[in-house]
């Protein structure tokens, strides 16, 4: 009796309330995130094939890891992902910066522009993939139709068939979809920027470019690092757009880590191997996040905690 009341009192005490209220969420996260994470880590050390459930208990040690590290296709996909990420994020940053600077200059319709800018982010990546697949299709795509109709090119350009062009087309789709993340965050940075240092720089002898280079840009970089952290996570796990546009083809020339992982895990049913790849890819993502975050933390020092 007294034990029950004791438990009751503890459960309903003021200190306990937040923990009790958080408990369902914690349990859900454990079920849908932590357990699968541990489970997949475990399977990466087994020869688990989806078609043969008994292999789930066949421990193979580091064999999966040894195999993928010796696998040329894996490294190609790995470095293609890194390269793709570098190109996409840099282009998005430059375009987003340009857009933010222009929108910051206009005085009429600023809010409307901000809203319009977010439209691409509202589409599902699958739909964006299909949309660009249609645009870049070499036979019926509107891009080739337009180019030929205007007499700019004679023959159809094989946008999604040539390896380099296909990679470019996918990059274009990614950039179209997500440049606004950079634009919106950098615009927020521009709005928050104090005017005085800009004027001080003018008096100190800076022309417009020098003011931008030495004052505006350093102020905006923390905002850019936030966008880069978000986008590096996004792009490192790019799957939907690639899968709908090219499916990793032609002949694996647009294969990125996650299309390769999906192919290995589901098409070839090598779930153990796929999970090993997935863990390598997670380490890649962590590395990028860590890099941008340390940049952000360094930049926050001079922002005086304003971010």
């Amino acid at each position: 009796m007294s034990v029950m009341t004791n438990i009751k009192r503890k459960l309903f005490s003021e200190q306990a309330t937040p923990y009790v209220l958080l408990l369902p969420a914690v349990i859900m996260i454990l079920i849908v995130v932590l357990f699968p994470l541990i489970f997949s880590l475990y399977t990466s050390f087994t020869g688990y094939k989806l078609t043969r459930p008994d292999t789930l208990f066949k421990l193979v040690g580091f064999r999966n890891y040894v195999r993928i590290f010796g696998d040329w296709d894996f490294w190609v996909a790995f470095f293609r992902t890194v390269g793709f990420l570098a190109v996409v994020i840099n282009l998005e940053f430059l375009l987003g910066l340009g857009i933010a600077l222009l929108i910051n200059k206009i005085t009429w319709g600023q809010r409307t522009m901000r809203t319009i800018m977010m439209f691409p982010m509202m589409f599902s990546p699958i739909l964006v993939g299909f949309q660009f697949k249609f645009i870049f299709n070499d036979n019926v795509g509107i891009l080739n139709n337009a180019l030929q109709g205007l007499g700019i090119t004679e023959a159809a350009i094989p946008w999604l068939v040539d390896g380099w062009l296909a990679m470019g087309a996918i990059a274009f789709a990614e950039i179209w979809m997500s440049t606004s993340i950079f634009a919106i965050l950098l615009l927020a940075g521009l709005f928050a920027m104090p005017k005085d240092p800009l004027e001080a720089a003018q008096v100190d002898g800076c022309n417009a470019w020098q003011t931008f280079r030495h004052i505006t840009l350093p102020f905006l970089m923390p905002f850019a690092y936030i966008a880069m952290t978000i986008r590096s996570l996004d792009v490192a796990r790019a799957y939907d757009v690639v899968d709908t546009m090219t499916g990793g083809g032609p002949a694996g020339r647009t294969e990125l880590l996650w299309t390769l992982i999906a192919r290995t895990g589901y098409d070839s049913a090598n779930m153990g191997m796929a999970n090993a790849m997935a863990y390598v890819s997670i380490i890649l993502s962590i590395a990028f996040t860590y890099y941008f975050f340390s940049k952000l933390v360094a930049a926050r020092r001079y922002m005086g905690g304003a971010l």
Binding site: D196, P197, E199, A200, A201, I215, P218, Y302, M303
Partner: peptide, 9 residues
């Protein structure tokens, strides 16, 4: 300047 306008970085 009134608000000093130092370059924060």
């Amino acid at each position: 300047f009134q608000n000093y306008a130092l370059y924060p970085h």
